[in-house]
Design a protein around this nucleic acid. Sequence first.
DNA 1: TTGTAGGCGTTATCAC
DNA 2: GTGATAACGCCTACAA
Lengths: 338, 338
Amino acid sequence: MKTVAAALGVSPATISNAYNRPDQLSAELRERVLATAAELGYPGPDAAARTLRVGRSDAIGVLLTERLSYAFSDPFAVEFLSGLSEVVEQHGVSILLMPLTLSEDEPDVRSVQRASIDALTILSLPADHPAGAVAKARGIRLVSTDLVSDPDGSWVAIDDVQAGVIVGAHLAALGHRDVAVVVDTLAPAGGDVVELQPESVTFVDYAGRLEGLRQSLPGSVHLISAGHNALASGAAAARWLMHQPEPPSAIVGLSDVLALGALSALTDLGYAVPTDVSVCGFDDIAEAGQNDLTTVRQPIRERGRAVGRLLVDPEATPRQVLLPISLVPRASTGPAPH
Amino acid sequence: MKTVAAALGVSPATISNAYNRPDQLSAELRERVLATAAELGYPGPDAAARTLRVGRSDAIGVLLTERLSYAFSDPFAVEFLSGLSEVVEQHGVSILLMPLTLSEDEPDVRSVQRASIDALTILSLPADHPAGAVAKARGIRLVSTDLVSDPDGSWVAIDDVQAGVIVGAHLAALGHRDVAVVVDTLAPAGGDVVELQPESVTFVDYAGRLEGLRQSLPGSVHLISAGHNALASGAAAARWLMHQPEPPSAIVGLSDVLALGALSALTDLGYAVPTDVSVCGFDDIAEAGQNDLTTVRQPIRERGRAVGRLLVDPEATPRQVLLPISLVPRASTGPAPH
DNA sequence: TTGTAGGCGTTATCAC
DNA sequence: GTGATAACGCCTACAA
């Protein structure tokens, strides 16, 4: 920039103005500036320097799990991000997809420390994940996808507890007393199956759904997991469950993906659904409908849009959005066998 | 940073070291630095400043069309980006999805001017789009998704001309003499149908495929478009074509999405495929197989991976990758009606 | 309409 | 093991 200024015998400020405030200088001079810039190979204001100076990067961040590709492979994520990007693109803002390189000791939040973003949202991680605190400390606006107690916080959520209650009540009404819940952990998919203790509930995503299930189901609730949110995890969990001495009469996946995995494993094993076992999920992704899975619907795409609005426009209102949910009963749930 | 340094009576450099080079200072001092930082609410090195100083942002960019949501809705893009992110995530690098806010006069490359990224790739835009030049001028490494004449350039491509020839030869062998080609323009989807002149071929994506078709098809080739790469564009184009006095005997979509749109419109109009009209696409996305569409296969996901490797690691080799293609004949093409 | 000056927050280098 | 210093490249009051 200095070089161009020198070549033209003007001050650096003028060069800056030529790019950012065309009205602050004569059209003729601006032309000359742009011309010599091109000639000298000056590509215009440096992005990093500009960001540092103005404190804005015209990008918003989406923090994903350790697997960045989750953004393109998980149906919920894809739908949510479609809605999000729909809104964001209208403002000419870019989207930074950030990985969470998981490490043993402390949760690794390096990507959010290193990211130049104006706002952040966190996808498919427990609501109280440290990344949120880090973002706030850095002055990055946070838009949560879970209810947040902070009255000033902005979020777009559904009532997960209520969602759990809806499913629990549905199954209870059908006579199920022995229900297994397949949850998402951050472990790799399809690995060893683990029985979780009720106490560890907070380490798990969708803790609210679990709580709702507990409230509304009369019988025992077993918690198991075979890794992160993927078909393979659901399938592995279902296989394990059905090999137990006393298999459950119903399997609930804390997401449709987990439930669909369980569903296909059951079919493979020769079980009749829902005659032998009922299966139920959450979210109502497109695939749920295609496979006749009973689930709880939420407006996924609209949720993405709402988050997008909050991300690009801090003034947006309302800053706290609770989206409606509803039970979608399909062919995968039926009366418990006695 | 200065504040923390002052509070501790040490120099800013020490604070910096505490974060970036733990080995450069005593563990004890480092502890104290981190503690006071937490106390004072210093969130660690600022991202923008760091990027400015270090010249690296740990993010790579993907430039999309004006619609950011394309990344999550177009099957080719989704598959490609899955592969890309698979590789990128292993390096803890983030992905910046950048929109191309289209404007009337000059192509708007603001997003690439304002982006702090280490490398860039451009998706679904003509190979010679100005954005590439801008990136290079800024010192951002460019990984093309098209063959590039520059011997130093790095790219991952298929032989689009050959792909066109494969399709053209296939149709020619089936006796087709009157073929319409549906192309992607940057106009909104499903809008007015436009007949393009052969000269305007360079403004169009996939110019190579077109050239291959021309080379191998004996009869006339009509070029038409109804907007950007979307089912609706293909459908609108097909409807328009079949209402012409002399409808073509075969419709080629320059992408599977366009071809699938045409296919469904033809079915809706009551035409039998391939008895009345043949339809053929490019890429072999999953939906092509599900709909029995004849197409040219390319390893989409692997292409994304290869681009990812090049993006993340400038030293990666080979720097120029030509991926194989092959005709996948299915039920959507047959002999031309005479 | 144009120029001046200060500072945005770091980190690499080199000296101590 | 620790500190001083000099960029990194830009923007924006404010003054002229």
